[in-house]
Design a protein around this nucleic acid. Structure first.
Lengths: 351, 351
DNA sequence: CTCCGGGATTGAAAGGTTTCACAAACCTGG
DNA sequence: CCAGGTTTGTGAAACCTTTCAATCCCGGAG
C-alpha cells in the first residue's frame, strides 16, 4: 500500500530552490553547482549536464543578493536622469543601455524630475544597493553629496554637465558653444533683437546656452540689451506656450523677431502659441530650439535646433563608468562634445 | 618611540563600515545597531543617539544585499516598458513612481524597446534580484515566461494589456472602444473612407484599435473595404511619415479623406509629411492620433487624439502590485479604463 | 530587603552564495 | 605498476544583516 511519493504532488509553494537543493538533486556538492554557474569550464561536461538538468527541474533562480553579498559587487549601473519626460534624456539613457548591454550589465533608470530631494533619495537607495556605479545628470552638479558618494567608493559619472573637481569623470556638450551657434545663426539671418526663452537659471544648461547667445551678440557688436529674456520656471511645452503669450504682448517696436529657446520642448510650445496667435513662423518670428529631439523635425514647421550627440553622450558616459570600475589605473577625464546646428524651416530667411 | 597610531593616518580606502564597526564605535552590540535601524522605538534615546553619532562618523551605509538576503524581500519595484521613447510610457512610469514613493519603494525602470529578447533578459535579471514585483507592458502578453515568473513567486502586473489567464492583475484601457471612438468621430465628420495607419499587428494595442475602427464602420453600415490599411513596421514618427508618402501616392479616387493612427507618434509623422507634400490638414486629410501625448496638443495643427488616463494607469498598476505583495488574501483583478476622445483642429469638419 | 515585571540590550543563528585551499580521481609516460 | 601532474570535485569559511529567545537592569511592590 504505497503512499504517493510527495514529490509527485503539485506542491503549491515549494519556496525557491537554492543552490543547495540543486546540489542535492544532482548528487554533487555545493561548490560544484557554484562552479557550473561561475566557471563552467572547470567542471566536466557530464556533471555539468546533471547539474543543469537539476536546475531546470527545480526552476532554480540564482539569488542575486546572496551573490552580491559574497562577491562584493553588483552588475547594475544606474542613471539618475533630470527629466524623464524630456526625450533628450530618454535617448541618452538608450545610449547607456547599449553600452551596458555589451558588458552584460543592467541599467537601472531613475527619474529625479528635477527635484533635489528625490534625487537624494535615489542616490541613497542606489548606494545601499551597492550598484556598480552611478551615472547622473544632477539637479546641482556642485552638490557635495556626489563627491561623498564617490569618496565612499561608488564611482560617479556626471552626464551633460561638467564639474571642476577631480572626483569623477564627466561627459558633456559645450552648451556655451551651442548657444553661440544658435544666436549667430539668427544674427546671420538679419535679426538683431533676440528673445531668450528658458529657465530656471539655476540649471547650468540654461545658463550656458544663454551665455553663448550673449557672446554671439557681443561678437556682432551688439550689447546684452539686444537679448530679451523670457524666463520660464521649467523647460516644458507648457512653459514655452506661456512665453509665447508674453512675447506677443510686447510692443511691436521692441518685440524680438527671433527666439532662441533653451530646449525643444519650449520651442514646440512657443511654436504652438504662435500658431494660435496668428504669428507666422518664421516670417514674423524665427525660432531655434535645442536638443534636436525627434519631435523637432516632426513639427509642422520643422524646427531649427542645436543637435547634441545624445546617444553618444550616454554611451560614452557608460563606457567611462565601466572603465573606471574595471581598470584600477583609471584616471578621471572630462569629455566634451561639440554641438551642431541643424537648420530647418523655422528660421528660413524671411524674404 | 611610539609609532603613529594607524587610525590617524588618512587611510585611502577604509572599505565600507558595517553594522559591526558601528557597534564597536558606539560601544553597543550588533543587535542594538540593527534595532536603531529597524525598530528605533525599542531602543532608549540615549543609546540611539550614541549609535547614530557613530553611524554618521563612520559614514555607514546599510548594505541592502545583506538586508534583503536575511529579510527575504526587497523594496524595489520594476517596470519593464515597451518603448522608452514613447512619452506615453514615460507618463505611465511617472504614475507608478508616485505610487511607489508613497510606500517608500523605488521604481526600477527598464526598456525592452519592443525586443522580446531584451525583455526576457530584464525579467531574468529582475527575478534574480528578487524584486518585490514586476510591472510590465509585454511584447507578447501570452508569453509563458510571465506566467512562470508569477508561479515562481514574483508578482506580476500587466500594464496596458489584458490577459485572460488568472495569474496576475492587469490594468488596461479599452483599446477597441478607443478605436471605435476615433473612427466614429471621423464618420460623424462626413468621412466614409478611412485609413488605418499602424503596425505591427502582433501588438495587441494595434489590433484592438483597428478592430474598434472596423466596428464603427460596421455600425455605420460600411464594410471593411472602407478601411484602408497602411501598415507600418513600428510605431515611430518616421514610420508615420513614410505612411504619408504612401497615402499621397494613392489614386485620388480611392484615397481616404481621413486617417486614424495607432498612436500619436505615427500621427505626428503623418502630419509632417502632409505638410511637406502640400496636403492640408484637416481640409484634405483629417487625422486622429492615439494616446494624447503632450506633443499632440503642441503640434502646430493640434492633433485630435484618444486620451488614455496614463498617469492613473501607472498608479493603479503599482497600487495593485503593492497590494498583492502586502495582502495575503489578495485576489487578482482586471481593471479596465475607458478612453476619451479629445477633439482638436486636425479633424475640424471641412467646410 | 527580596522579588517581580517589563523595558533595554545582547548573542548567536540563519539566510544563499562565492571562494579557496585541499582531496580525489584520472592520465601520461617511464 | 608507479610517480607526478592535471583535471574535477569538495567542504568550510566568509559576506553583512535581521531576528528572536534569552539575559540584564531598574524601579516599585510586598
Amino acid at each position: 500500500m504505497a503512499v504517493e511519493d510527495s514529490s509527485e504532488v503539485a506542491a503549491p509553494a515549494p519556496r525557491a530552490a537554492g543552490i543547495k537543493d540543486v546540489a542535492a538533486a544532482a548528487g554533487v556538492s555545493l561548490g560544484t553547482v557554484s562552479n557550473v554557474l561561475n566557471r563552467p569550464e572547470r567542471v566536466s561536461p557530464k556533471t555539468r549536464a546533471k547539474v543543469e538538468a537539476a536546475m531546470a527541474a527545480l526552476g532554480f533562480v540564482r539569488n542575486e543578493s546572496a551573490r552580491q553579498l559574497r562577491a562584493g559587487h553588483s552588475s547594475v549601473l544606474a542613471y539618475v536622469m533630470l527629466d524623464g519626460r524630456n526625450p533628450f534624456f530618454t535617448d541618452v539613457a538608450a545610449g547607456m543601455e547599449d553600452a551596458a548591454a555589451e558588458d552584460d550589465l543592467s541599467l537601472f533608470v531613475c527619474n529625479s524630475a528635477n527635484l533635489a530631494e528625490r534625487e537624494a533619495a535615489y542616490l541613497r537607495r542606489l548606494e545601499q544597493q551597492r550598484v556598480q556605479g552611478v551615472l547622473i545628470t544632477p539637479v546641482d552638479p556642485d552638490s557635495p553629496a556626489l563627491a561623498e558618494l564617490a569618496r565612499r567608493g561608488t564611482p560617479v559619472v556626471i552626464v551633460d554637465r561638467k564639474r571642476p573637481g577631480t572626483d569623477h569623470c564627466s561627459v558633456a556638450v559645450d552648451d556655451v558653444r551651442g548657444g553661440e551657434l544658435a544666436a549667430r545663426h539668427l544674427l546671420d539671418q538679419g535679426h538683431t533683437r533676440l528673445a531668450f526663452v528658458g529657465g530656471p537659471l539655476t540649471l547650468g544648461q540654461v545658463r550656458d546656452r544663454r551665455e553663448g547667445a550673449l557672446r554671439a551678440l557681443l561678437a556682432a557688436g551688439l550689447g546684452p540689451d539686444h537679448l530679451v529674456d523670457l524666463a520660464t520656471p521649467q523647460l516644458t511645452v507648457e512653459d514655452g506656450s506661456n512665453a509665447g503669450q508674453r512675447l506677443a504682448g510686447l510692443p511691436s517696436a521692441t518685440r524680438p523677431t527671433a527666439a532662441f529657446c533653451a530646449n525643444d520642448l519650449l520651442a514646440l510650445g512657443l511654436l504652438r502659441s504662435c500658431a494660435a496667435l496668428g504669428i507666422s513662423v518664421p516670417a514674423d518670428l524665427a525660432i531655434v530650439g535645442y536638443d534636436d529631439i525627434d519631435f523637432a523635425a516632426a513639427a509642422t514647421v520643422p524646427l531649427t535646433s542645436v543637435r547634441q550627440p545624445r546617444h553618444r553622450l550616454g554611451r560614452t558616459a557608460a563606457e567611462l563608468l565601466i572603465q573606471e570600475t574595471s581598470d584600477p589605473g583609471h584616471v578621471h577625464q572630462q569629455v566634451t562634445y561639440l554641438p551642431e546646428l541643424v537648420v530647418r524651416a523655422s528660421t528660413l530667411r524671411a524674404r
